[in-house]
Design a protein around this nucleic acid. Structure first.
Length: 555
RNA sequence: GCGCCUGUAGCUCAGCCGGAUAGAGCAACUGCCUUCUAAGCAGUGGGCCGGGGGUUCGAGUCCCUUCAGGCGCGCCA
């Protein structure tokens, strides 16, 4: 629909350029936008303002000349110059028929676009250390990552979701010693293996230790402590990862790949990555350590890759991991990180450049903090005091649907107030219910139709001439926006756009529903409205699928 | 000290690559159920887009500066 309009405008502009003997500037493209004001028609363009100077005309004058070249009829019903030089278009009502036909025939695929062109993209998210349960912040990252991935999939990308398990390094050893200590506690021999200074104290550690006792009795206490640390570390990590995996699965998030940091070392992928940096002269040895020349990329000092004592830093793994990702032929890499890691972004980008990859192949989504509100007051959380709120607690309290929706309701780079009371409310104040309710209402009408023995009409029975009410037109317009919203959300990695769009779509439906009846009107009109409603149901359903929120048939 | 994020209606936030009279939701107020789900709809009021400068036909949007809040600046992860 907009493609045709663009073509019409390109032709018009071309003809005028010819008449004037002027050139169209390089890189010029016709852009169409949705006017903010409904009174300004369906679409608008600012080409007259853009071309005024090169054409040597006043914007309004040029706008009038462009309009004079437009063939009215099939596509465009009305075009008028407005404001400083906009051209506003009202489309012929065909677009409504097209929208309804399109939605119903594509059904589950309605809203899919192909801006991704089948390119491979990896979204790596959550990637929490396997040292404890996921908390709120991880939850937001999980929702943002998962929904971003869904959006990209809908936009025609070939998407892989990946969880990077930080199972190498000192944290894991600390975890092992903590588990070991709890294990001895469980045997009543706590003094033999004291809890390390910064050990993991959570209740889950006690439970894990108990499971070791169940499984191994006191056999693990027979050997010297140092000999079993590794075992405790690996096994505890495995148990916690499984716990995390279950929580995420219940949260509606599943990964294609669980990638172990340790495997980079076990499979010898770290050394070659370091060698490549050295070969390209981005790494050098000094003072017994291996350094990355981050100063070449504006960092204030070079950064250590391999410490003097021979132990690699986390940065080392990340270099190897980045290389590994490219080896798997991804064209685009998306990292979802907590905003507290933002200082690390330039370093990752630097490595990316050092390897000779385009800068925009890597995108890092920084997720700001979540403030949990109960009774309108922030809930104080402290790791030290053990008062961390876990993702599981939130899911259990407010449900998966509301949790997911709330986590993507705001732009990622803005801190999020998560109001527990609001998330649980079953009123229109709560956007999740508002959207789901629209879907349930439609399904309710279907039940009524079934009872009255009325079948879903065929698309050919849609009669656009019967669509006269503004709420009907607004609903059709909202439905027609799904593909463009998906494209924009994918383009910007902005899942919140879809949450906003979902609300807008639901609003258009509720408004229509309240003002017009479906049953009890003349049959042709009833059929036309049923088809419009069916298109709305499909759009709502697909949007909820993208968000990973259920679409209830009854509420 | 340096860097990143944020600052828009009473509250929570949208605002796309600079465009028209800055938008939602909530809260407040007024209406709407004998008919498909009122968990809904319609309407009203509410603004120095943190402040100051600049860029230009045009700035909430871009640049500089300043103020306020948050978060980072290890051979920790």
């Amino acid at each position: 629909m907009t493609e045709e309009l663009k073509k019409i405008l390109e032709n018009a502009v071309g003809k005028i350029a010819g008449d004037l003997g002027k050139e169209i500037p390089d890189g010029f493209i016709v852009r169409l936008e949705r006017p903010r004001q409904t009174g300004h028609g369906d679409w608008a363009t600012n080409i007259a303002m853009q071309l005024a100077k090169p054409f040597g005309l006043k914007p309004r004058e040029l706008a009038d000349r462009i309009i004079a070249e437009i063939p009215f009829g099939q596509t465009v019903e009305k075009a008028e110059a407005a404001g400083p030089g906009f051209i506003n278009f009202t489309l012929a009502s065909d677009w409504i028929t097209e929208t309804v036909r399109n939605a119903i025939s594509k059904d589950k695929d309605y809203g899919r676009v192909d801006s991704g062109k089948g390119r491979r993209v990896q979204v790596e998210f959550v990637s929490a250390n396997p040292t404890g349960p996921l908390h709120m912040g991880h939850g937001r990252g999980a929702a943002v990552g998962d929904i971003t991935a869904s959006i990209l999939d809908f936009a025609g990308w070939d998407v892989e979701r990946e969880y990077y398990i930080n199972d190498a390094g000192l944290q894991m050893e600390l975890l092992g010693r903590s588990a070991q200590s709890r294990y001895f506690d469980a045997l009543g021999r706590g003094e033999e293996a004291p809890m390390p200074e910064d050990g993991y104290h959570g209740d889950y550690m006690t439970e894990i230790a108990a499971s070791f006792v169940d499984k191994y009795g006191d056999s693990l206490a027979q050997k010297p402590l140092e000999e079993t640390v590794e075992f405790f570390s690996v096994e505890t990590g495995r148990i916690i990862i499984e716990m995390i995996r279950k929580d995420l699965e219940e949260f509606g998030v599943t990964f294609d790949v669980w990638f172990s940091e340790k495997s980079l070392y076990d499979n010898g992928q770290v050394e070659p990555a370091m060698e490549e940096l050295k070969k390209r002269d981005f790494a050098y040895e000094e003072d017994g350590a291996l350094w990355f020349r981050s100063t070449l990329f504006g960092d204030d000092k070079d950064r250590v890759l391999i410490r003097t004592n021979g132990v690699p830093t986390y940065f080392t793994s990340d270099v190897a991991y980045l290389k590994n990702k490219y080896d798997r032929n991804f064209e685009k890499l998306i990292y979802v990180w907590g905003a507290d890691h933002h200082g690390y972004v330039p370093r990752l980008k630097s490595v990316n450049k050092a390897f000779g990859h385009p800068d925009d192949a890597v995108d890092v989504l920084l997720i700001q903090m979540v403030n949990l509100l109960r009774d309108g007051k922030p809930v104080q959380m402290s790791k030290r005091a053990g008062t961390i709120i876990t993702l599981r607690e939130i899911m259990d309290e407010v449900g998966v649907d509301a949790t997911r929706f709330f986590f993507v309701m705001r732009r990622c780079d803005s801190t999020l107030d998560f109001d527990l009371e609001l998330a649980k409310k079953a009123t229109s104040e709560n956007p999740v219910f508002y959207v789901q309710y629209a879907h349930a209402r439609i399904c309710s009408i279907y039940r009524e139709l079934e009872e009255r023995g009325i079948a879903l009409p065929s698309i050919d029975e849609f009669d656009v001439s019967l669509i006269t009410d503004q709420t009907e037109i607004n609903l059709a317009k909202a439905i027609s926006k799904l593909p463009e919203e998906v494209e924009k959300a994918a383009d910007e990695f902005a899942p919140h756009r879809i949450a906003y769009y979902a609300t807008e779509l639901a609003e258009a439906f509720h408004s229509f529903y309240n003002s017009q009846r479906i049953l009890g009107v003349d049959e042709p009109l009833m059929k036309t409205r049923i088809l419009l409603m069916e298109a709305a149901r499909i759009a709502l359903k697909n949007v909820l699928v993208i968000l990973g929120v259920s679409a209830p048939e009854k509420m």
